[in-house]
Design a protein around this nucleic acid. Structure first.
Length: 644
RNA sequence: GCCGAUGUAGCUCAGCUGGUAGAGCAGCUGAUUUGUAAUCAGCCGGUCGGCGGUUCGAGUCCGUUCAUCGGCUCCA
C-alpha cells in the first residue's frame, strides 16, 4: 500500500505497487501523455517502473531538465537501434544525454561514416520512433550481462560491465536494441517526434588519447516539430554572433597563414577598442593600489626551470631559442609570474611594504595543439591582464576580496549579469598531481571560500579542478545565447614564492614567505573581446565601439556642413565618420545599420539651415532632430551611464 | 596531436559524370544629387590553398602538405 507524496504536499494512497504513469493518469490524461520519467525520493526512475514503497515523487515532463535528459537519453538508444539495423556489427561505447541533445560513441570498424549516412540514420530513427517501441528494464546478473555482450563481441560494454558491481546492472530493451544502461527511459519512442542528427566527430574511448578512436554522432530530438525548427533558428542566430565572423565584418582582428596559426593580429578598430578596455582596467587598478610593470617577451630557460613550468610544460611548448653562447637558451614567456617574482626580489621587503601588487598587460606564448585553436578564444599568442599580488598570509583573504570586487565591477560595466563563480579545489585523493604542502593548500582553499562567502557570492565548487600549484576562483559567463565561457581567474599560489625563495622581514625581524595571488579579471584580452563580441552580437557598448557616430549627408550639397558636424563632434571626443559617397540616403543608412554604428546623423537642407542633425539610432530608428550640443549631451549621458 | 569535413575573386557562393573559370556584394570610373535599410551603367579583379601525380587535357580524379571548421584530448 504505497503512500505517494506529490510536490505540492498532497498524499495519495494506492492499493498495489504503482508507476509514475499510473499516478499521472490518476491526475489527468494530459499529464500522463506528457510524463517522461519520475523522480522518486530524489532519484530519477522510469515512469513505467513500479513504486512499491512510500515515496515522495515528482512527475517529470519536457519542462523539467531531468525530464529532457530522459528524453534525450532514450533518443540516444533510438539512434543506436537505427545504427545497429543499418550497420550490423557496430560496437557501442557510451551514449549519454548532454546539455543540448545527446550523442553515442560507436565503433564502426572499417566503415567510414559520412554526413550522408546521418540522413539515413535519421530516417530510420523516425521510422522506429513511430513504431511506438516501449522501453523495458531488466535486472541482470553480472555473469549474464558479460555473457550477453561477449556474444555480441562488444569489448566496450564488457569493459564497462567489468567495472560494475553485481546486483546493480540493468539492461534496457527497446525494439531490437538492448543496451547496458542505468536508465531511466521514456515510456515509449513515439514521444520522439522531431529528430536531427547534428554532427559526426571522432572521440577517444573514455576520453583517453591512447585508446581507440570511436565515431561519435551528435543529435537532438524534440517532442514537437516546431521546437526543432525553433532550435535550428537559434543555432543560426548563434552563427551570426560568432566572434570570428563579427571580428572579420567589423574589422576587429585577423589571422594570416603566413604569420602563423593561432597568432591573432588586431586591426586598428580592434586595437583601439582593446586600448579602451585596458585603460578602463588600468584606472581601476590604480585605485586599488596596483603598480604597473613591464617585462620582456622572453626569459632565460633557467627562469622556468626555477618556476617548475619547464618541467611540466617544456616538452609541449615552443622550443627554446638558442644564442651564439653554447648552452644558453631562452623561452618565449608562457606566463608573466616568474618575471614578476624576480622583480619582487629586486630589494628586501618589509612586512610594512606588503601587499606589493604588480600589474602588466603581458603578452605570452603557448604552443596550443593545432586542433584546439579557435578564433580569439584559443590562440598561441595572447595578452593577459595579469597582476601578481605578494602579500602576507594574514592579508590573503582581504586581497582576495578586493580582486573579486574588481572582477564584479568589470562584469557589471560590460553587462555580464549572468555569471558563475567556480571554486576549484584539489582532488584530495590524487595529491601527487599537485605541488605544495597540505597545510598551505588547506589555508588557501579556506581563504577563497571565506572571501566568496563574505562577498555573499553564489559559487559552485569543483573538486580536482585546481591548478597544480594552488586553488582558484574562476568566473564563467554565459553569453546571450546561453553558452558558457571562462573569463576572469584568481589563483592562490604558495608554490612560486617557495621556488623563488621570496621573503619579507616581519615585525619581529624574522624572515617570512609571502603568498602570491595571480589574477586576471578579463582573463586575456583576446578571449574577453571574443566573448564580448558574441555576448553583444557586435552591438558593442557606446564607450567601446570603434565608431560612435556617422554623418550621412543627403547629397553632395551638404558635404561641407557634414564636415563641420564631424569636426564639432570630434572636438567633443565623439568618434565620428562621414559617408560622402554619391549614394542615396537609403543606401547610406542601410550600410551604416549593417556596420552597427550606434548613431547615424542625417544632414540635409533643413539641418544645415538650422544647425541641426537628424539622429537615427542603430536598430531603433529615427529619434528626431537635435542641435549638435544636445546630441553631444545625449552621447555623454549614455557614456556616463555605461561607465558608472 | 587524433578522427571527420571543407578550402574557387576582398566577402558570400555557383561550377553535373575531367574539355582549359562564373554570379551577387565590395572596389574603381561615369551618369544620377537623392530625406530614414540596396539608383543605373561600364570596368577591374582568380596560376580554383601549396606541391607532386594520373590523363591528350584537372577547379573537377589520386597522393601529400598547409590552413579552416566540427569534435576528442589539453589548457601554466
Amino acid at each position: 500500500m504505497p503512500k505517494i507524496t506529490l510536490p505540492d504536499g498532497s498524499v495519495r494512497e494506492y492499493e498495489n505497487a504503482v508507476t509514475g504513469l499510473d499516478i499521472a493518469m490518476s491526475i489527468s490524461e494530459g499529464l500522463a501523455r506528457n510524463v517522461l520519467s519520475v523522480e522518486v525520493d530524489g532519484e530519477v526512475w522510469d515512469a513505467f517502473r513500479p513504486i512499491e514503497k512510500d515515496a515522495g515523487i515528482k512527475l517529470l515532463t519536457w519542462d523539467d531538465e531531468k525530464g529532457k535528459a530522459t528524453f534525450w537519453h532514450s533518443s540516444a538508444h533510438l539512434m543506436a537501434e537505427a545504427v545497429e539495423q543499418l550497420f550490423p556489427g557496430v560496437k557501442f561505447g557510451i551514449g549519454p544525454d548532454i546539455e543540448n541533445g545527446f550523442y553515442y560513441d560507436m565503433d564502426f570498424g572499417e566503415i567510414n561514416l559520412t554526413e550522408a549516412d546521418l540522413e539515413k540514420i535519421e530516417k530510420k530513427m523516425k521510422e522506429l520512433a513511430s513504431q511506438k517501441q516501449t522501453f523495458m528494464r531488466e535486472d541482470i546478473s553480472k555473469k549474464d550481462a558479460l555473457a550477453y555482450f561477449e556474444n555480441k563481441n562488444d569489448q566496450y560494454k564488457l569493459e564497462l560491465i567489468s567495472e560494475l558491481e553485481d546486483g546493480e546492472i540493468t539492461l534496457y530493451k527497446s525494439g531490437s536494441f538492448t543496451d547496458l544502461c542505468r536508465g531511466p527511459h521514456v515510456p515509449d519512442t513515439s514521444k520522439i517526434k522531431a529528430i536531427k542528427l547534428t554532427s559526426i566527430a571522432g572521440a577517444y574511448w573514455r576520453g583517453d588519447e591512447t585508446r581507440q578512436m570511436m565515431t561519435r554522432i551528435y543529435g537532438i530530438t524534440f517532442p514537437k516539430a516546431k521546437m526543432l525548427e525553433e532550435y535550428l533558428v537559434k543555432l543560426e542566430e548563434a552563427k551570426k554572433r560568432d566572434h570570428r565572423k563579427l571580428g572579420k565584418e567589423l574589422e576587429i582582428f585577423m589571422f594570416s597563414q603566413r604569420v602563423g596559426q593561432g597568432l591573432p593580429m588586431w586591426l586598428p578598430r580592434g586595437a583601439e577598442m582593446r586600448e579602451r578596455l585596458e585603460n578602463f582596467l588600468k584606472k581601476i587598478q590604480r585605485q586599488y593600489g596596483y603598480k604597473p610593470v613591464i617585462t620582456p617577451h622572453i626569459g632565460n630557460k633557467d627562469l622556468y626551470v626555477t618556476s617548475g613550468h619547464y618541467e611540466k610544460y617544456g616538452q609541449d611548448s615552443f622550443r627554446p631559442i638558442s644564442t651564439p653562447v653554447e648552452g644558453e637558451e631562452f623561452l618565449m614567456k608562457p606566463m608573466n609570474c616568474p618575471h614578476h617574482c624576480e622583480m619582487y626580489k629586486f630589494k628586501p621587503r618589509s612586512y610594512r611594504d606588503l601587499p606589493v601588487r604588480y600589474a602588466e598587460f603581458g603578452t605570452v606564448y603557448r604552443y596550443e595543439q593545432s586542433g584546439e585553436l579557435h578564433g580569439l578564444t584559443r590562440v598561441r599568442g595572447f595578452t593577459q591582464d595579469d597582476a601578481h599580488i605578494f602579500c602576507r598570509p594574514d592579508q590573503l583573504e582581504e586581497e582576495f576580496i578586493k580582486v573579486i570586487e574588481i572582477v564584479l565591477k568589470i562584469f557589471k560595466t560590460l553587462g555580464f549579469q549572468d555569471y558563475t563563480a567556480q571554486i576549484s579545489l584539489r582532488d584530495p585523493n590524487n595529491k601527487e598531481k599537485y605541488i605544495g604542502s597540505d597545510d598551505n593548500w588547506e589555508k588557501s582553499e579556506s581563504a577563497i571560500i571565506n572571501a566568496t562567502e563574505k562577498m555573499g557570492m553564489d559559487t559552485i565548487t569543483e573538486i580536482g579542478e585546481a591548478a597544480f600549484y594552488g586553488p582558484k576562483l574562476d568566473f564563467m559567463v554565459r553569453d546571450a545565447l546561453g553558452r558558457k565561457w571562462q573569463l576572469g581567474t584568481i589563483q592562490v599560489d604558495y608554490n612560486l614564492p617557495e621556488r623563488f625563495d621570496l621573503e619579507y622581514v616581519g615585525a619581529d625581524n624574522e624572515r617570512y614567505r609571502p603568498v602570491m595571488i595571480h589574477r586576471a579579471p578579463f582573463g586575456s584580452m583576446e578571449r574577453f573581446v571574443a566573448v564580448l563580441l558574441e555576448h553583444s552580437g557586435g552591438k558593442l557598448p557606446l564607450w567601446l565601439v570603434p565608431d560612435q557616430a556617422i554623418v550621412l549627408p543627403i547629397s553632395e550639397k551638404y558635404e561641407n556642413y557634414a564636415k563641420n558636424v564631424v569636426d564639432l563632434l570630434q572636438n567633443s571626443d565623439i568618434r565620428t565618420l562621414v559617408d560622402n559617397r554619391a549614394e542615396k540616403i537609403g543606401k547610406k543608412i542601410r550600410d551604416a545599420e549593417l556596420s552597427k554604428v550606434p548613431f547615424m546623423l542625417i544632414v540635409g537642407e533643413k539641418e544645415e539651415a538650422e544647425g541641426l542633425v537628424s539622429v537615427r539610432r542603430h536598430g531603433e530608428g529615427d529619434l528626431g532632430q537635435f542641435t549638435i550640443e544636445s546630441f553631444v549631451e545625449v552621447v555623454n549621458t549614455r557614456l556616463e551611464e555605461e561607465l558608472s
